[in-house]
Design a protein around this nucleic acid. Structure first.
Lengths: 194, 194
DNA sequence: TTATGAATATGATGCAGATCATAAATCGGG
DNA sequence: CCCGATTTATGATCTGCATCATATTCATAA
């Protein structure tokens, strides 16, 4: 995996504690961040303090490239969910990585494409669909990542922050979806069937 | 420019008439589309027929790569705005392009990053901000592309379809923004100052 | 010019979801 | 097993924007 190759090359790891802010909107990008372990969330926060989850990144993934690549200040906060060990790769080294490692370049292209896909999907939802539809869409998007019969490890608040809704609306919406048989609940948790 | 190189290599051009649908949601991607001339829009359409503009593509640009790269069916329609001459590059040739032309690969990465940036910005707007704020944001996003003193060539309906609002709301919103001095109008058109 | 369709405009009404308040259930750590 | 904190739950009210209806203005071709 990419992280291994980086440590082999002598890149060092930095530890960030829970709730640490790795960068915030307006800052000029200096690094691309590769996660060795832990988890971070990328969120925008409106004037009245409401978070919107732009993405969640885990071990083996990287974040912060788009801003660095097009040389524009960050739009979002990146905040640590679980203590994380992170490799900061500066602009020069990152460009070298792209130019000298064709398979990294290809995987970056695919990663960007996947994120773009997700954002296009959510944009359509936020622009045109109402609460229940939005909820069903992210739930179905998240479910394939959990084992059959296992629950979705996500709070109603997190669903709210991914869909631009409010907790109360998510709580009511999830209940309705379950009543309609479109999802199945078990002890409050959303369960993957089949 | 990339298009020139493609025609040099013997790729041929196909003409699409206004309002032609190049692809639609659910279709399996087979090509990446390079625009030689003309203009297309990429839109998602909700059950009740409301369009959301995911992007607009003009001469020299290409579209359709993300779906092809991650091998998932299209999410959106791509519809011709103005008669267009388009080069269809199939999967194999497109991958060859990425692998054999390092500068194309880099420009693709930057293009994807720019689109991602735009979508992140709009997601925050649609999730958290109300009509006036959304309008000010796209207007300020679009303005740098027009000459100083020139008007924005965009209808209220198009602004509506980019922001997830309704025409009436856009009309009232634009008027308010101008009253507040946040934008300037001239004969109904939004003007770039300085 | 005038006709005709598109774009802009404006008022009235309805409704989904935000907001506010308060409570019950569940969870994680000592 | 208990306790404080987090998460889920539920009702009441408020509000921004959608929706509907109907003009008016603006372009463009005949």
């Amino acid at each position: 995996m990419e992280i291994q190759r980086l440590t082999d090359k002598g890149f060092t790891t930095k530890t960030f504690q829970k709730d640490a802010i790795i960068y915030e909107p307006g800052m000029q990008p200096r690094y691309v961040y590769f996660i060795q372990s832990g988890e971070v969330r990328m969120v925008t926060i409106s004037d009245d303090g409401k978070e919107f989850i732009q993405g969640v990144f885990k071990a083996g993934q990287y974040f912060g490239e788009p801003a660095l690549l097009i040389d524009k200040p960050y739009l979002a906060f990146t905040i640590v969910n679980k203590v994380s060990r992170i490799i900061q790769v500066n602009r020069q080294d990152f460009f070298a990585l792209i130019e000298n490692e064709p398979d990294f370049s290809m995987s970056l292209i695919k990663t960007l494409s996947r994120r773009l896909f997700y954002k296009s999907m959510m944009l359509e939802e936020l622009a045109n669909e109402k609460a229940e539809h939005r909820l069903l869409t992210i739930i179905n998007y998240l479910l394939p990542d959990v084992a059959v019969g296992a629950p979705l490890k996500v709070t109603r608040q997190e669903l709210a922050d991914m869909t631009g809704l409010r907790v109360e609306t998510v709580i009511r919406g999830v209940k309705l979806l379950s009543k309609k048989g479109l999802i199945s609940l078990s002890g409050g948790k959303i369960i993957r069937l089949e």
